[in-house]
Design a protein around this nucleic acid. Structure first.
Lengths: 252, 252
DNA sequence: CGGAACGTTGATAGCTATCAATCGACGTGG
DNA sequence: CCACGTCGATTGATAGCTATCAACGTTCCG
């Protein structure tokens, strides 16, 4: 069937904004007008980054945030002797502006092909809470949610064993992917190499591999062709001691 | 000399708010009116917590933040089997509202006697950026600064050795204490037991002790009677690979 | 076919945890 | 005043988790 130019644009925007809409709508109920607004964000110009590329930091002190439409990235830090640590993973629907306001030697590294859209409009919406109460609240709470996830990362690295860390990570990612509609049958695309997983969990590549084998042998997971399936979510949750951070709904 | 009631109140407020004023003024230049405003915050009612006590979480979804006037606390998380991890330390001048908007099993544990004041007025000031541009900007950037410190915590726990972690922590604390005027001659009050240090750095008590001995034997630090002195700050910085996160000054 | 990237496996070393015991400081009650 | 218990710091011995080194297999691609 034929679509007018406007309809096609909106359709494309729909698809592109899907992750953003789902992420924010999972936090606060958004009005139809607000969803429309977010869909228009998705019809703006796209940016593309190749796997392994670094997202260049804008020179401006107050850059507009960008939002990930598809693909995975990581906020990474490298030590002088080459050791590397990922601070957090950035998934579709997440904002890509982690260095805001502070100068620190972090970089944003793309782990797969990454598509982003400019989030300047979303920032403007947050500054007009009268017109976009839902968006304003959701963006604020999404930041609190991200903070809660960083706390999880601290717990993992500080007090959990390799096995627990990995289980915890898998459950967290399942939850996050599920929020933005990327999970199908408890499986989801998982574009991390074992080296990346090591950098995220503070482990060596070799140990990542061995821990993974253990979970495979216990029939807890299946991982092939960059697709991770959690075969026994309850057991993984138990081992991980992971509870998804629950955002509280704010009145007014 | 005699002081009027008002003057005395302001003097007391002065002293009490000192950490808050210094913390925020270190980020953004504050006008005299804004400093006065913060001093009045300090003359409000105090709350006291004993060492080892937990700060009870307010039932409200949107509680007013509290600010630490004196003493140290920690945002802590306990695992089911008793393992404990501190996520971040809370020092004088820091806001004491780390669980905002998200339900997670964290607690705030006082590591020494802690005095706080109600920060409701400060939150109101941040919502009136026209009247208090400096305070609004400073509070926002202080949050970004806290986030940068949590990133440091991730790096420590993920990729640094016990020795590096401890050096990094000491340098960070020196920097933070220095910002709020608590450092005298490269030494500052350090109310953490070795167990607390372990919970913060993801180490066992025994290993904390041994690492500490090593640093003592190298004449890098001196720690007695709950007072930590950094004898060789450059060497510690080198070992820690710590760069204090620099807040960027935002235009308008 | 060669090479690069990634995954896998074995052997070894090393860092850190755990267990246990001792010591000093402190406060309390007899 | 002293015995006692508690808390924190310290030390030694041992175990265990994880890193490192090295080699090999697999897949993919030019």
């Amino acid at each position: 069937m034929a679509l007018s130019g406007l309809e096609r644009r909106n359709r494309a925007g729909d698809l592109r904004s899907e992750a953003i809409c789902q992420r924010l709508a999972a936090i606060v109920v958004l009005s139809e007008a607000e969803l429309d607004f977010l869909r228009r964000v998705g019809s703006g110009p796209l940016s593309l980054w190749a796997p392994r590329s670094f997202v260049d930091q804008p020179a401006s002190d107050h850059p507009a945030p960008r939002y990930i439409i598809s693909g995975w990235a990581a906020l990474a830090r490298e030590l002088q002797d080459g050791r590397r640590q990922f601070v957090q993973l950035l998934l579709p629907g997440d904002a890509l502006c982690p260095l805001l306001h502070v100068r620190q030697p972090q970089t944003v590294l793309c782990l797969s092909m990454v598509q982003t859209v400019d989030g300047g409009a979303i920032r403007l919406a947050t500054q007009d809470p009268h017109r976009f109460p839902g968006i304003a609240a959701a963006v604020e709470m999404a930041a609190a949610h991200d903070r809660a996830l960083m706390i999880e990362q601290v717990i993992r690295l500080g007090r959990q064993t390799a096995y627990e860390r990995m289980a915890n990570l898998f459950v967290e990612l399942h939850h996050r992917c599920s929020t933005v509609g990327l999970v199908h049958g408890d499986g989801f695309a998982f574009p991390l190499t074992q080296e990346s997983r090591g950098d995220l969990l503070g482990l060596s590549v070799v140990h990542v591999n061995r821990t993974l084998q253990m979970m495979r042998n216990q029939n807890l997971i299946q991982l092939k062709q960059s697709r991770l399936t959690l075969l026994n979510l309850p057991a993984l949750r138990e081992a991980a001691e992971f509870k998804p951070p629950q955002v509280m709904h704010v009145g007014a």
